[in-house]
Amino acid sequence: MKDYYKILEINFGVDILTIKKAYRRLALKYHPDKNRNPDATQKFIEITEAYIVLREPSKKQYYDRIYQDYYSRKNTIHVTKPEYEYKQKEWAEYGKVKADEYTSIPFEEFARRLLKEISIGASYIPNVVAIIIVCVIAIGLLTILPEVFDSLFMVLFISIMVIGLFYLAYRLFLVAHDDYKEDRNRKILNNK
């Protein structure tokens, strides 16, 4: 039985982000354009096969079940099942196809695509800027509060404005946070 976790140099049960990072690191190392070692192509096919199985939740779930039986309990019941052998063959073929597809892409382009997946933080700079602007306005209003202390109406008005502005900053943070999670999920699952 192939140990996909060992191939990707990660521990069993790690999350999808770790799998993604491990693949990114090894794929950049063993891409045949970059690595002239004769074993590099075979290694690249292996890591691609491991990655396509571990990145898909349904495949990973199936593989993990058999993995646990085989490695933890030393029970080989599932491994000899024709169903698994068929799956293993199917994954190997698909891994080979995907690896061929990736090797046909020049290394620079392949690296650019892989690294693009992690560059999702930059799109949140406007949110950070807006949060800073809103907080600065709120703090500015707070500083003029002592000057209008004799007018109850102004104190109430400014207090409401300040609370509203801080709430706005919080909402801006929430929107950015939710969008970040959405972006990350989409990029991890390649649902673009």
Binding site: P126, L168, L172, V175
Partner: peptide, 12 residues
């Protein structure tokens, strides 16, 4: 700017 950024991304 604030109103725009309070809106989520189009694919959300």
């Amino acid at each position: 700017l604030v109103a725009t950024l309070l809106s989520r991304k189009h694919y959300a």
